[in-house]
Nucleic acid binder design. Structure first.
Length: 572
DNA sequence: GCCGTTTTCGGCCCGACTGTTTTCAGTCG
């Protein structure tokens, strides 16, 4: 799938055009198109030119460029633009606080073309010889470079959310605030987060700001104004705080939740109706009369729209769907009836059955599936046929004693490098659920990995494919696999795909989840629990499902036990 | 470069903060 590649190229073209000082709207067109393609739940290569043009933000010209890249593997415009600047130059734009204008200036006046050269020039005071740059700007650029070197990459949602809640708590305790909410990509539950946005209402904004910049979490203050401040925490995460009046809370929340693309589209719609939306409310252009803004619902309502869940606000069709009354009724945490990927002491989990049952019942679950590793995973004390048969016997006994709760007999079986499973079919036949996954040989080619997964999907005993891309956020990239091919086969064979809720995995991701839905592949959301606390990761998995537009009917572990058993594919 | 119940040309979201200025450009979200 070339979607990501083309999105990256278009973004880079936008950067380069920006450096050249080109028409900002042309630049925006490339960025919009990049986002559109990135969020597309199917392979761009599979679309005809006519179909491409139908996509919002893509016209004759960009459709042609997409086709050009798909058929030749190159993009003329991109190559032309790259010739005008040295290869290392684009990294300069990643320095926070340094934009295209300044980048171009330092290149043209000082021939600076890399981060190292920029750092050197800033340290030696050469930058301040340029117009508009003095000591302070030099300092900020050095800070920016340091930030970049320390690793400014996006952080896993599961690591940022607890920090955000902690900061929220501190503000609430120490500052004179009334309403307080998380906004931004965190409220949209994006799987990785760049910064934390917090919104509060207060009648004493200056005091709130003072408290905020002096919180113990704060390492550096980037900006401090009367209604808006930005800081960096000791973990290197930027936190933005915004104060508004109560009457504007909804408008501000809507605005700061984004996404940017979603908001731009709303504002365009508004201006066509003679309205203006900003963070203070919705206003009639003619007389500046305020028509709403206390709640988010008001903002959407004046545009003739129902409230849209934050997870959907990516401008990937949600506004059009809302206009037609066709928004999906997305799955929620309360819909989840059980967890289908749980490890015990028998392999590398930490608990016995009773502890897990108790923890699951506390979460109002009706069942969990015991899915310990199979023998191939020696490091995790994987079960061989004999031990698995023993476990099956014990689970049967436990089930006969339980009321209103069931343990599913299962296994997380290793897909070997040749695509075969590492336990015999005789044993698998006795299970309720067989979760198959890859734990080794990630470096195989895309063809090999795809073949391996296809072979597992075609095995008649497999119920679910777990964490199918193997990514570990911030540690290991997803391995290359032909997602379309494996989803197609899964649909054909009746195999479900897992959204692994473990915060470092979140695999499938949101795009893949949406693709799975388009292909009609059933989904399970599982936590891969090794410790009882891991059950609480379910919310992260649900957030991926929500971002993928999944509804309750698309998710197998929203079903009651009997129906679930009926729907899970098993050995014939 | 896209797009059209105001338009096939002329629009294109909106505002806060900083630094270097003395009224504003650049950057960011």
């Amino acid at each position: 799938m070339k979607n990501q590649e083309i999105a990256r190229l278009f973004n880079e073209i936008a950067d380069l055009l920006e450096l050249k000082g080109e028409n900002p709207f042309r630049i925006r067109a490339y960025r919009r198109a990049a986002m559109q393609i990135e969020g597309l739940p199917k392979d761009v290569s599979s679309l005809s030119e006519e179909e491409l043009i139908k996509l919002p933000g893509i016209g004759q010209d960009l459709a042609g460029k997409i086709k050009e890249y798909i058929s030749t593997g190159r993009l003329g415009l991109h190559e032309e633009l790259r010739k005008e600047f040295p290869a290392t130059f684009l990294t300069l734009l990643q320095v926070p606080g340094l934009g295209p204008k300044t980048a171009k200036l330092v290149y043209e006046k000082l021939r600076i073309k890399s981060l190292d050269e920029l750092e050197e020039a800033a340290k030696s005071g050469k930058l301040r010889t340029l117009p508009g740059i003095r000591e302070k700007t030099e300092e900020n650029i050095l800070k920016g470079i340091e930030f970049l070197k320390r690793g400014s990459e996006r952080k896993p949602l599961g690591r940022v959310l607890p920090l955000a809640m902690d900061i929220l708590d501190s503000i609430q305790k120490k500052a004179p605030v009334k309403d307080i909410a998380i906004a931004g990509s965190l409220r949209r539950w994006k799987d990785t987060i760049k910064d934390i946005d917090i919104l509060v209402t207060s009648t004493r904004p200056e005091e709130v700001m003072k408290v905020f910049v002096h919180l113990p979490h704060v390492k550096d203050v980037l900006a401090k104004g009367t209604t808006k401040s930005s800081v960096v925490t000791s973990e290197g995460i930027q936190v933005d705080l915004r104060v508004v009046e109560e009457d504007s809370f909804g408008a501000a929340l809507q605005y700061f939740t984004g996404s940017k693309a979603h908001n731009i589209k709303l504002r365009e719609m508004a201006s066509k109706k003679g309205l203006k939306i900003n963070e203070y409310g919705v206003f009639r252009e003619s007389d500046n009369k305020k028509l709403g803004g206390k709640t988010e619902e008001e903002v959407y309502k004046v545009l003739g729209l129902p409230w849209i869940p934050p997870e959907l606000r990516e401008d990937t069709g949600e506004i059009e769907a809302a206009l037609e009354g066709g928004l999906p009724d997305i799955v929620s945490y309360e819909d989840i009836k059980g967890d289908l990927h749980v490890h015990t002491k028998w392999s590398d989990g930490s608990h016995d059955f009773d502890t897990l049952i108790k923890a699951a019942r506390q979460r109002n679950y009706l069942y969990i599936a015991i899915t310990d590793h199979s023998k191939g995973l020696g490091v995790a004390k994987g079960l061989d046929e004999e031990r698995l048969l023993e476990q099956i016997k014990i689970i049967d006994e436990i089930n006969s004693r339980l009321t209103g709760f069931k343990l599913l007999k299962g296994v997380e079986i290793d897909i070997r490098s040749d695509g075969k499973l590492d336990l015999s079919e005789d044993v698998l036949k006795r299970l309720d659920i067989v979760v198959a996954s890859i734990h080794s040989g990630f470096k195989q080619s895309k063809e090999q990995l795809t073949k391996r997964l296809l072979s597992a999907i075609r095995n008649p005993c497999v119920s679910v494919i777990a964490h199918p891309t193997g990514r570990l956020i911030g540690e290991r990239d997803a391995y290359q696999v032909d997602m379309e091919a494996i989803l197609k086969e899964a649909k054909k064979q009746g195999v479900a795909f897992e959204i692994n809720a473990y915060p470092m995995r979140l695999d499938l991701n949101d795009h893949h989840a949406k693709m799975a839905k388009e292909y009609g592949v059933p989904i399970v959301i599982s936590t891969d629990t090794h410790l009882t606390q891991h059950f609480d990761y379910m919310r992260y998995g649900v957030s991926i499902a929500r971002r993928g537009w999944l509804e309750r009917k698309d998710v197998l572990n929203c079903l009651e036990y009997e129906e679930l058993i009926r729907r899970l594919r098993r050995c014939p």
